[in-house]
C-alpha cells in the first residue's frame, strides 16, 4: 500500500507550496511573552513533531496554526494563503479525547461531516469506513463511556480524518494514555496518516514517540519558546516500534534529550528561584 505514498513522501520537501509556512510568529498573554519568534515550514505530506519542556508554548503554536487564537505578531500561511479563520481541511486532534458522550461511535465520527451539512446516509457510510480504518469495527454503536481511553482517542482520530484533511494538528493526542497503548496508537496513527498522505504537526512530551513518527523533530526551548534544534529522522517507512533501536534512531533520541534536559534544568532553576 505504501509505494505510492512513499513516492509522495519522498518528494514532499521539494513540493511547490508548503502546507504550513510561519514567519516571525509571536504570542503574548498580557505581560507574558509566551512564544516566538518562530519560523516553521511543513511540507505537504510531511510529519513534523515538536518536543519541548512544559509550558514552552507548543500548544499555543498549534492553536495559532489551527486559527483557535490569533498571533500577536508574524505571518501564518496555510496552503499558500494567509490564515483568516478555521480552515475546512485542517483537522485538530485534542489532548483529552473530545468525544461527545451522548453520541455513538459512528455518530461521533460523523459529527464534523454533520456540522458541514453532509446528508445522513453519506456521512454514516463514510464514518463506518473510518471506524473500520482506525480499528474500531464492531464498536460502531457503542457509547464513549463504554470504551477505553485509547479507543476514545481512536474515535477522535477517525473524526479528524473524516473531513479529508490535508493538515492534521495533534496536541499530545496520546498524552493521557498508558505507555503500551501509546506506542500502539502511534503505530496506528502512522498507518492511517500514510494512507491519506496529509501533513501532520504533532506535539508530544515523548521523545521516543517523536522519533518513531516524524520526518523531522523540532526541539523548542523554554518560554518564550523558539526552536533550538532541528533533527531529521532518516528511518525507512513504514516504521514499526523496532525501528527505535536502530543506531540513527538512538542517536536522534540522545541528541533531542540532551537539548531538552538543558532547557528543562534551566527552567526548573528559574521557577525555583522566583517564589
Amino acid at each position: 500500500m505504501t509505494t505510492q505514498m512513499k513516492e509522495k513522501r519522498d518528494s514532499a520537501p521539494t513540493a511547490p507550496t508548503p502546507i504550513v509556512q510561519l514567519e516571525g510568529v509571536e504570542q503574548h498573554f498580557g505581560p507574558v511573552h509566551a512564544l516566538g519568534p518562530v519560523d516553521l515550514t511543513i511540507g505537504r505530506g510531511e510529519f513534523v513533531s515538536i518536543v519541548g519542556p512544559s509550558g514552552c508554548g507548543k500548544s499555543t503554536l498549534l492553536e495559532i496554526i489551527g486559527a483557535l487564537q490569533d498571533p500577536a505578531r508574524g505571518s501564518v500561511e496555510v496552503d499558500g494563503a494567509p490564515l483568516t479563520g478555521p480552515r475546512r481541511r485542517t483537522a485538530i486532534v485534542f489532548q483529552e479525547s473530545a468525544t461527545l458522550p451522548w453520541r455513538t461511535v459512528v455518530d461521533n465520527v460523523a459529527f464534523a461531516l454533520e456540522v458541514r451539512g453532509i446528508g445522513r446516509k453519506e456521512r454514516r457510510e463514510r464514518a463506518r469506513e473510518l471506524v473500520e480504518l482506525v480499528g474500531l469495527g464492531g464498536f460502531e454503536n457503542h457509547y464513549p463511556a463504554q470504551l477505553s481511553g485509547g479507543m476514545r482517542q481512536r474515535v477522535a482520530m477517525a473524526r479528524a480524518m473524516s473531513t479529508d484533511p490535508d493538515l492534521i494538528l495533534a496536541d499530545e493526542p496520546f498524552g493521557a494514555l498508558d505507555e503500551q497503548t501509546r506506542m500502539l496508537m502511534a503505530e496506528e496513527l502512522l498507518r492511517v496518516v500514510e494512507r491519506i498522505g496529509c501533513g501532520v504537526l504533532f506535539i508530544t512530551h515523548s521523545i521516543q514517540e517523536s522519533v518513531l513518527l516524524s520526518d523531522r523533530v523540532l526541539v523548542m526551548g523554554r518560554r518564550p519558546g523558539t526552536f533550538i534544534d532541528e533533527v531529521p529522522i532518516d528511518l525507512p517507512r513504514p516504521r514499526m516500534h523496532a525501528a527505535l533501536s536502530e543506531p540513527s534512531a538512538t542517536a536522534a533520541q540522545e541528541r533531542i534529550w540532551a537539548q531538552i534536559r538543558a532547557e528543562a534544568e534551566v527552567a526548573m532553576v528559574a521557577t525555583r528561584s522566583t517564589p
Binding site: L68, I92, F94, F111, R116
Partner: peptide, 10 residues
C-alpha cells in the same frame, strides 16, 4: 475541550 472542537469546526 468540546467548546474548542466547536470553534475548530466553525
Amino acid at each position: 475541550i468540546v467548546t474548542k472542537l466547536a470553534l475548530s469546526l466553525e
